[in-house]
Amino acid sequence: MIPFIFKRIINLIPILLGTSIITFLLIHLVPGDPAEAYLRLSQIPPTDEAAAHIRKELGLDKPLYVQYFIWLLDAFQLDFGESFITGDPVFEEAIYYLWPTLQLTLAAIVLTLIISVPVGILSAVYKDRLFDQVSRILAYVGASMPSFWLGFLLIYFFSFKLGLFPSGSRGTFVHIVLPAVTMCLVYTFTFTRLLRSGILEFMNQPYVMYARSRGLKERVVIGKHVLKNASQPFITAFSISIGNMLAGTVIAENVFAWPGIGRYFVSAIVNRDFPAIQFCVLLMTIIFVLINLIVDIIYAYLDPRIRLKGDQLK
């Protein structure tokens, strides 16, 4: 297991380097001159003279590969430049906004798992019975509800009408409830159905029948022989969705005035705040890559065929 994890971590290095090149190049692929954007945001008239000066100051007049290496060296020291708008280091700013987003995403993930796993299992066990039918209908409704609309509905009922939860901003535990519910609902219902169909597929495997024939308790048959196998496609879909959730927080953040990185990112894009955009893209990529690593490790833990691949195969 340890060599497997080590190998995966080594594999990350080229991926991260490649990502850094792409994010660096982004600045040059996006229409608009960074120097002009800088001047505009600093309220300085963008004359040719001023632009040339800024280009020199930001190092934009150097060859591209030199710029990249300077940027990379700075990046290793966690210096990703200063925001064009505030003039503060983007690293500190982004990390400041990242934490609330992670908090929100984590709450949504936990909520999704708490609901979808047991409901998925029960829908499979009680296939085509009332429980399964109800969960199917809810899945259709839930999956087809846009989250911004759902967010406003939740605010209207639970905040405005019932006064149970605050309608926005960040603070105590109750503040996170509505945005987390908004984010998780779509995934909850989809995952319930996904897990259900996975379980049903593995339920008919010969080894499940053999497990039953040995007199194992149904709890063991489902939990050990079915669920452990059926969880793999579920984990795949889930890991992809964690990325989507992180990216999708922007909607919940806007609806609920949650001070997260989604809003920071969007405002950076609108203002052409290039260093901030660059760093946000890089940060998101690193998070995606890390989630993938964790998922790979979970796979290997669950499935010996992945863990032992290469040696002892007959």
């Binding site: 499940v208 053999y210 040995r214 452990k228 196998n229 010996p304």
Partner: peptide, 30 residues
């Protein structure tokens, strides 16, 4: 009764074992 009184030796041994559970665990759990 299953296993304890009447035990099945299923056809197709390759498909009768859970691929992600060790041989020992199959025996121990039974």
């Amino acid at each position: 009764i299953r296993g304890k009184e009447i035990a099945l030796i299923p056809q197709n041994p390759m498909a009768s074992f859970n691929p992600i559970i060790s041989i020992g665990e199959h025996m121990v759990e039974s």
